[in-house]
Amino acid sequence: MLRLPPLRYEAPSTLEEAVALLAEDGALLAAGGSDLVPNLKRRQYPTARTIVSLRRVADLVGIRVESDGTIRIAALTTLATVVEDSRLPKVLREAAGAVASPQIRNQGTVGGNLCVDTRCDWLNVPDTWRQAAEPCLKAGGEMCWVAPAKKDCWAVSSSDLAPVMVALGAEVQLIGPDGRRSIPIEQLYRNDGMAYLTKTTEEILTEVVIGPHAGLRATYRKLRRRGSIDFPILGVAAAVRLDDADICTEARIVLGAVASAPLRVPTSEEVLVGRTYNAETIAEAAEAARKLARPLNNTDLTSRYRTRMIPVFVRRALEELG
């Protein structure tokens, strides 16, 4: 059986205590733990010493919908709760429902999914495998097995909620040693497989806020071989606003699982904005997405296949919104 390494477990009752604990060497933050625990069992965090669980912190669970339509989701709200909350936009409920399996959605959280570690076929294997080859960059080594010529880590952003939240223009609340701050969620992510979040390790994501979004049409599609359970090998979130004349006034298209961060596709967005939303502009926007992303061979199926599916996925997402 795969077992956890020896660890200290802390479950403080306040965020301030949690922030203080996270300042210690080898401290790792745990929300639902559904991704963290298997990663720990595969010994992906050799420096881990302490798990800081947010389980006992009050007020980190729940969804509030304010009178102006603003949605506030506390970080430890489970994915299952999001799926079942009929007040939430369909796109959010569907994206949450596309994560893993019913059992894992009962455990996994919104904050956990937004901050989920990047993944790579060469990294997410047991330590016996990592030790057999030279360790890769993210495992503390000198080279990347996926792109040996590069000096960067290409581990894949594998969150289903992240592209959707970026498309919806959400903001996240963070608390850290210097107090609280709020940033657009797009700025939470960095296209670097190792340092994929801009927040410091001592900062805790406490809440995600989706501002008023009346009239915004949004959808999310997730590609993978099985009908359930697996991480995305491609995700597309699209949000558009159309005026009465079917002119697109706002568009956000975000790709998941093709880079180390959710990837906005400005080339596609530019095609749409200001133009009539019809099959022709959709096709043009979909084609414009092809050029941007360069997925590598580090998930299920080939990068060639995933690359080819990007315009198909973007087109289908946009068609659904028409």
């Binding site: 298997p38 294997v125 495998w129 057999a132 099985r226 009908g227 697996d230």
Partner: peptide, 28 residues
């Protein structure tokens, strides 16, 4: 027929986990 495959590269099994060796789920 549609998913189970051990990917073996130079004698090394590249997908030795139930995350990556896919077997049909109940939905499938």
């Amino acid at each position: 027929a549609v998913m189970e495959e051990l990917i073996i590269d130079g004698g090394v099994i590249r997908n030795p986990t139930f995350t990556d060796y896919l077997i049909p789920t109940f939905l499938d």
